[in-house]
Amino acid sequence: MYEDLRSSTVFSPESMGELVNYKQKHPQALFWAGGTYLMAKEVNYPSKNPINIISLGKMDELKRITRNDTSVEFGSMASIQTVTAIARNFFSKDICNALNATSTQLIRRMATIGGALCTQKIKTSFTTIMMTLDANIECRIVGKKPLTKWIQLDNMFDKSGSLVLSPSTLITRLHINADKDSIFYFKETGSPMTQSDYSVVFAMRSRLLQNSITETRACFNFPSIGLHLSEAVQSSLTGVVLPMNPVRIIRLTEALVNEIRMEHPALRPIQVEQASRMFESYLYDLNAKVIARS
């Protein structure tokens, strides 16, 4: 069965210089971070045409974590479990709970930030949370003219929610600002990895000034189709005084459903329905929080 198989060549650079060299010599080689997505979806052993691999596991500079009072910067090879462990110093309990809900500890220990953000065919829950937290990433284009730039995480994806980074681009760092005050909501139905055609992930963050919403950011993730960052809903929610009238909630939800249907026509009806229910539920949750305060 395995007689005429060729083994993949694995390169394990220890510095950025070595990595650039390997990538230039083998442009088709695949960057390998934690492997949780690649082993499950992309690498189908045994294969007659194995892909060469650049394993990033020995690159210490991609594992560094720098933090100060207002922000934290993770190297892209830090595991999701590391982010979860450090999160409680920087984020509210709701955000920590959301990070904890991204898969199980066993997977989080293996999965890395870079890998979770760069999966080609599906979008992970971690990406959804980071989009909502307005994270920035440092990208390094590993080509003949190496280039490093910081971009907003939103810009990694096009309007339909597909990844726009080229295969020679490497995410090196993730920068997130501390956030202990905002109200965060996270809901996931189905697993983005195993039920990517049906799953819906929703994360939303709002700041409240007295009883009015001052800033809001909502991100829907339809794993096999794309991400949806709703600008219209965000702007229509800003300045709204809570508790909100149920009629207004219905109108906002309808507007959101129309927007999602327009931008992602390939979505299944069940996904649209779940997205609208999650959004509605968040708005009622906000109402309940404000009523409980008064």
Partner: peptide, 26 residues
Amino acid sequence: KGAYCGNCVVLMDGQAVLSCLVPAFK
């Protein structure tokens, strides 16, 4: 075959991992 059924757990350096997700070079 890597679809997260969770039936292939082993302890690797003392920590539980799914063995279908660990390639030989690791």
